[in-house]
Design a protein around this nucleic acid. Sequence first.
DNA 1: TTGTATGCGTTATCAC
DNA 2: GTGATAACGCATACAA
Lengths: 337, 337
Amino acid sequence: METTIHDIAKKLNFSASTVSRALNNNPKISEATRKLIKKTADEMGYRPNILAASFRTKRTNTIGVVVPHINRHFFSSVISGIEEVAYKSGFTVTISQSNDNFEKENKITHTLFSNRVDGLIISLGMNTIDFSHLKLFSDKNIPLVFFDRVVDEIKAHKIVVDDFDCGYLATKHLIEQGAKRVAHIGGSLNIKIYKNRQDGYIKAIKESGFEIEESLIVNNSLTREDGTNAAKKLFRNKKLPDAIFCANDTTALSVIIYLRENNIKVPENVLLVGFSNEPFSEVVTPPISTIKQPGFLMGKKAAELIIHQINNKNTKQNFETITMPTELIIRNSSTRN
Amino acid sequence: METTIHDIAKKLNFSASTVSRALNNNPKISEATRKLIKKTADEMGYRPNILAASFRTKRTNTIGVVVPHINRHFFSSVISGIEEVAYKSGFTVTISQSNDNFEKENKITHTLFSNRVDGLIISLGMNTIDFSHLKLFSDKNIPLVFFDRVVDEIKAHKIVVDDFDCGYLATKHLIEQGAKRVAHIGGSLNIKIYKNRQDGYIKAIKESGFEIEESLIVNNSLTREDGTNAAKKLFRNKKLPDAIFCANDTTALSVIIYLRENNIKVPENVLLVGFSNEPFSEVVTPPISTIKQPGFLMGKKAAELIIHQINNKNTKQNFETITMPTELIIRNSSTRN
DNA sequence: TTGTATGCGTTATCAC
DNA sequence: GTGATAACGCATACAA
């Protein structure tokens, strides 16, 4: 049997309420009894039943986190940031992954709700176009923070990067390095971040006086395999591209490997920029120029925002969309010395 | 206000107990009323208060997981495996990271205990030599599963790989490829897995009729920086090593980069094997031969074991140590074609 | 400064 | 099959 506050109370001839107060550092309890009670609690091996307390106070001190894939470097960095801030503020973090599967995302989210998490931080799955499971939270006034894959339809804090600008800068950089025919391998245009990256690419191309060529743009789901297929397709053109802006590093890697096998040199023949700064992009040959997203910081920020909301539920919120700084990291894949 | 079973009961002129039973598919409730109650619950937007139920039943359906670093590929793969199995069995997973900091590990573990997790899956921090926070679980008969960094002092299921054998095989492979002076960059010998890897190395060396040379063994904390320093040290020897078995891929990567800068060729001049099969090891030049640990499977296995324990708490357990299969992945860094 | 009484929402034990 | 009641451990309003 676990020790409860009643056991401590009985032993010391106090009431349970006094014990409860002492343990919670209620200032109305005298220094002496508080010390005595805490000491005794310690000796008796008392461990508070947080479950009971949460049930009573309707506060779990738990933050739910939903990401598409835990083992992607970007997401695990975000989680790491969330966890660090949460821990320091006395919150526990419950993590689930949707596997980019809407059914699972839906179920997970409901479970988190039923578990009465104090707030939810989420990056949406690829196929999520119905948002009722999230409305559940905003309707019941449970703090909600989106990051990365956000959605316009729901009012909440959002943490993003300026994908449009990133796409623009990456493409412009390629053009500045002398590229005249920049191709783009992008993601599904249903997803806002990929649409934005592509729009940035288009702006840079037009601004530099080049034409948008349909044959230089490929959209797919940005896996390793898709990247290879995209490369094949692009290099089947009569007029070959001399640079490619890839919407993620995985695809850029596929391209590098494909080109190596076909004796086309990066960066001598083709310049390359990726996206996300995956750990491998720095060490592959040639190192891949890429956009660095501050995953860890995004996580910290998300946690800060949600904890602030949790602690100020009554005061009205102005929901803000926070754009985090990115960095174009220029490496060998996009520079001709 | 949230809808409760009492609200449903009132509306339908049933008792709360009947509603509770119907919702839990208790066979004593008639088909008709069960359907009616479920339908009404749905209409009223009823969401069970799992907190209350957990409190009552003393079962949270939650598994606690503690790892040193969430954003290491190996650990996030393990977590991913745990999460997948847990989800399918109706469990929620709470994840924390210790940052290899004993204080934090201690505090986290106590918090998980107070939150009444049904079980704990843990890989210990680098500096954990006191285990009272884990005894807490085994003493109270709360299922506990260790993986990767395990400990002999506590009886529990353990999921490991055969580090000794891995070290042996890796070293032997290098010798078979013609190496005559194999060096080793290892981790802290306080940590069992690193000790075992090194012992495997030693066995292979001796078995092949070579001498153990102190100057060919470096122990450090296996960071990127440490790897570079170790390489410097090794190549200051009068008689240079012609192969290195590194206790992780990070260090192997450092060595590759250091050697490249010093015009020593891998694999022509020096053969190399790493450990863990980090994502970058496949794509770096040259690709690094390494030991693949089945992180995802280890996670699945850990979850299966702990869920089985949770569901069979009364039946006595025979604690087993499960050794998962590894694979020596041979790539260019260790082969001379 | 401390004690008494009450209830959070659910499930389990009886009873009918 | 269904209902009444108690209990889980804690925090809090109110009393003293």
